[in-house]
């Protein structure tokens, strides 16, 4: 049975050599009492290809991916680099930001600054 590969055509070489696109990753953002949590789908990004930078009032997430070793025989998706920025408001503690990456999902936790966290008022009974 013959298997046809297209790796050695000029068109296929162009496909491999051209730079990867950059796209905006899809995100979820939710709030807890103590923090905001940002989840971003960034399949193909490893820890060494990931940058999470908080500067002044901006949070930037940037992920790099490796291009394919050779073009697929049947291709439905194409890996791309990811970049997206978010505005950090003053009620957030930029110094306390933590980030983890698992199974292509970036999770960034941005703590609220202490003064904006809800305080539980203890009710005294006499």
């Amino acid at each position: 049975m013959a298997t046809m590969t297209t790796t050695d055509t000029p068109a296929a070489r162009r496909e491999i050599e051209r730079p990867l696109r950059t796209i905006s990753p899809r995100v979820d953002i939710y709030e807890t009492d103590k923090a905001y949590v940002l989840l971003a789908d960034m399949p193909g990004v490893g820890p060494e290809g990931l940058d999470v930078v908080a500067e002044r009032n901006e949070l930037v997430i940037h992920g790099r991916v490796d291009g394919p070793a050779r073009p697929a025989d049947c291709q439905e998706f194409e890996l791309a680099a990811y970049r997206r920025s978010f505005t950090l408001t003053e009620d957030l503690d930029a110094a306390g930001i933590t980030a983890t990456l698992q199974d292509g999902v970036l999770r960034v936790e941005i703590p609220k600054s202490a003064r904006t966290q809800p305080k539980k008022i203890r009710v005294r009974t006499e």
Partner: peptide, 29 residues
């Protein structure tokens, strides 16, 4: 990231046929 060209199904896949194996990559973070 993904294109849904003909099938519109999830996850999108890439198929590479080698002499010994067929490799299927599915994009599903």
């Amino acid at each position: 990231t993904w294109r849904w060209p003909l099938t519109g199904e999830y996850p999108p896949i890439n198929v590479m046929r080698g002499d010994a194996h067929i490799t299927v990559d599915a994009l599903c973070s």
